[in-house]
Computed example of a mutant assay.
Amino acid sequence: MKKLLYSFLLLSSATLFAQQNPSIRFAVANNIIGTVEMFNAKKTIVQSSKVYSSAANLPQTLKKYSFISTQGFTEYKIKNGYEGLDRISLADLNAQYDIPADTPVFIEGYEFTDTNTLVYGDILGKMEAKNYNGKKTLFISTSR
């Protein structure tokens, strides 16, 4: 009975770690991941934006982000001279936590398997290394 209960608790905790946050709306600018909230706070650097309501509407250049477009997706164009926002690759974030560079990273419950993906530093709120499916994995929350 203890083994059954332990197995259930382990499975449910793994499921809870990976739940997607439906309130987060991801965005991209210059092929770097951010959030709509982040860009709304930086309106002075935004030249234009285009909102896509579903993954089916994404242009070919953004199809690789279809897995995070469940709540819609926004593409931003940054004004010339303002492209220097802090950015970091998910592989570099993994390295900071002594996690192998190719280990997927979870951001708000969305699994990013391509660790070469760049993210803006402004979306990195709370970061925590947790055991997920027997591997040390980085989980990122955009809220501070």
Rank of each mutant, 00 (worst) to 15 (best):
S66Y: 01
K3N: 15
A95N: 11
T61M: 06
I99C: 01
S49T: 12
V46S: 02
K43C: 01
Q60K: 14
K64H: 10
G81V: 00
Y76K: 00
Q71D: 10
T15V: 15
T115W: 02
P22Y: 10
Y110P: 03
A27L: 05
A129G: 13
P59Q: 03
V105T: 02
S143M: 09
L11H: 13
K130S: 06
D98L: 15
D114L: 11
P104M: 03
K42F: 06
K136R: 12
G109C: 03
V105R: 00
E111G: 05
T35H: 01
F112N: 05
D122L: 07
S13T: 14
T74G: 10
I78P: 00
Y120P: 07
S53T: 13
I88R: 00
N21F: 06
G34L: 02
A56W: 12
P22V: 08
R25P: 09
E111Y: 08
P104H: 06
K135A: 12
I33A: 02
L124F: 07
L124E: 01
I32P: 00
K42N: 07
L9M: 14
N31G: 03
S12I: 15
F139D: 07
F26M: 03
L11S: 13
A27D: 03
S12V: 15
L62K: 06
I45D: 00
K126Y: 11
V119M: 01
R25C: 08
L16W: 10
A129S: 11
Q20V: 15
V51N: 10
G84A: 03
K126V: 11
E37I: 08
L138A: 05
T142Q: 02
S141Q: 13
E37V: 08
Q71H: 07
T70C: 08
Y6N: 13
N30C: 06
S49F: 13
V105F: 04
S143W: 10
R25K: 12
L62Q: 05
K2P: 13
T117Y: 08
N40Q: 05
S89V: 03
Q19W: 13
Y76P: 02
L124T: 01
L62V: 11
I32S: 00
I99H: 04
N80A: 10
K130G: 05
A95T: 12
V46E: 02
N133A: 11
K64R: 12
L9Q: 15
Q47D: 08
S7K: 15
Q96N: 14
A18H: 02
S49C: 13
F8S: 08
L93Q: 05
E75D: 15
Q71T: 11
G134D: 01
S69L: 05
E108W: 04
G34A: 02
K42P: 02
L85M: 11
E128Y: 12
S54A: 10
Y82M: 09
M1A: 14
T44A: 07
G121K: 09
T137E: 07
L5W: 13
Y97L: 08
S13L: 09
I24Q: 02
P100L: 12
Y97G: 05
A27Y: 03
Y52R: 05
Y97I: 04
